[in-house]
């Protein structure tokens, strides 16, 4: 079995055994291509009462390369209004790009994204949202975001 399926199988077994952190629920993981989680922010938050769906798409490179992670936007779910989340669900976060490390797991990514929402004080879109969404590829991994803590790399 390929490294990626073996690892995902273990992660899934762990989720089924240990459960997921508070506010995060596994919605579907029918194969090793696409997993879906619901994410909500608990406590005092600008997202009170909102439930989002995080979609993970894996290729054979996982976990050496990051999964493609975005918020699901369909008739049931919307993208959270956040300075680093586009209205099409794409997320600008360095851990999903050049700071990805195989020490991260699917659940760790969910928790990080949940924390990112939890610390948001003001709901607003990235300033270039409209233009990005017009040109954005289907797969957010085809967007190479520039993370500002990485001087010299772009």
């Amino acid at each position: 079995m390929a490294v990626s399926s073996r690892r995902l199988q273990k992660e899934l077994a762990e989720i089924q055994k240990q459960g997921t952190p508070v506010g995060i629920t596994l919605l579907s993981a029918d194969d090793f291509q696409t997993w879906l989680f619901s994410v909500e922010v608990l406590g005092e938050t600008v997202y009170a009462g909102e439930v989002f769906a995080l979609m993970f798409r894996f290729d054979g490179q996982y976990p050496i390369q990051p999964p493609a992670v975005q918020f699901l936007v369909d008739e049931k779910y919307t993208s959270p209004v956040h300075p680093h989340v586009y209205s099409n669900g794409h997320i600008c976060a360095s851990i999903l790009g050049n700071e990805w490390s195989p020490v991260l797991s699917v659940v760790a990514v969910c928790v990080t994204i949940q924390s990112m929402l939890a610390s948001c004080k003001k709901k607003e879109r990235p300033p270039d949202n409209d233009r990005y969404v017009r040109h954005a590829p289907d797969n957010p991994k085809k967007t190479q975001f520039v993370y500002h803590d990485d001087t010299g790399i772009s």
């Binding site: 700071e99 760790a108 924390s115 990112m116």
Partner: peptide
């Protein structure tokens, strides 16, 4: 704008809005 820092980190750093290249 706030920027996400790294894993498991609830706090956010100061940073600029997203920049990107579509490949």
């Amino acid at each position: 704008a706030p920027r996400m820092k790294s894993k498991d980190l609830p706090e956010l750093d100061e940073a600029q809005p997203p920049e990107y290249t579509i490949m």
